[in-house]
Simulated scan of single mutants.
Amino acid sequence: MENLTSMEQFEQLTQQEKVVFKFTADWCPDCHFIDPFMGEVEEQFTNFQFFSVDRDKFIDLCVQLDIFGIPSFIVFDKGEEKGRFVSKDRKTREEIESFLLQFN
């Protein structure tokens, strides 16, 4: 999964088709819980582009998007937010896959 590097990149990516932003942080144990299977989730959903957003590096973006818990996911498609899976709760593989299936 590629890391988001700038706000300009974020703005460009939101205009593309089916982009998933995963909001995370190095210190977040629930974020690391999903690391072992996220590669397989990406392989399963090849019609999406996945980008990791470090909450600590993009705190203003997180506030703007109401990301107050991590890990969280937001899907954009052609400039429009299509869905969000945002909470402070630990996410399971099944919950993430179920969320993404809505946009497949």
Rank of each mutant, 00 (worst) to 15 (best):
E42Y: 09
E2R: 13
R55H: 10
D35P: 00
K78P: 02
D56L: 05
Q12W: 01
F45A: 06
D56C: 07
F23D: 03
L4K: 02
I67E: 06
N47S: 15
E42H: 11
I34D: 01
A25M: 02
P29N: 11
S87L: 05
D30E: 10
Q16G: 08
K22C: 03
W27Q: 01
I34N: 04
C31Q: 05
I34W: 03
S52M: 05
P36N: 11
L65T: 08
F51V: 14
T92H: 10
F10R: 08
E43T: 12
F85D: 06
F85I: 00
D66P: 00
F33V: 06
D60A: 14
E11I: 10
P36M: 13
T14P: 06
G79K: 07
D56Y: 07
D56N: 13
E43K: 15
Q12H: 06
T5K: 15
M1Q: 01
L101C: 09
Q9T: 09
F21D: 02
L65K: 14
K82C: 09
Q64H: 11
K22N: 11
S87M: 03
F99P: 02
L13P: 03
V20H: 12
F76I: 08
T46C: 12
F21C: 05
I67Y: 06
D54F: 00
S87I: 03
N104Y: 10
G79A: 11
N104M: 13
C31G: 07
L65Q: 15
E43H: 13
F73L: 14
Q49T: 13
V53I: 10
C28P: 05
I74H: 00
E42G: 03
I34K: 01
N104C: 09
F51E: 02
M7T: 12
M38I: 12
V86P: 01
E95A: 15
E81S: 13
T92A: 12
D26C: 01
S98P: 01
K78G: 02
S52L: 04
E81Y: 05
D30N: 12
Q12F: 03
L4W: 01
D89I: 09
I96A: 03
F50P: 05
F76C: 10
V41N: 04
L101I: 05
R90S: 13
Q16E: 15
K18H: 13
D60T: 12
V19A: 11
E42N: 11
D56S: 04
E80I: 14
L100N: 08
F68R: 13
E81M: 15
S6A: 10
G79M: 08
C31V: 07
T24Q: 06
N47E: 14
P29Y: 08
R84G: 12
T46R: 14
L101E: 14
R84K: 14
D77G: 08
F73M: 08
L61E: 03
E8Y: 12
D54N: 14
M1E: 00
D89L: 15
T14V: 15
D89H: 14
K88P: 11
F76Q: 07
S6P: 07
F99C: 09
I67Q: 02
V75S: 04
F21R: 00
I74N: 00
N3K: 14
F103G: 01
E94N: 12
F85N: 07
K18Y: 08
C62S: 13
V63H: 11
Q49D: 10
E11G: 05
L101Q: 15
D35T: 10
T24I: 09
V75T: 09
G79R: 09
N104P: 00
R55E: 09
W27P: 01
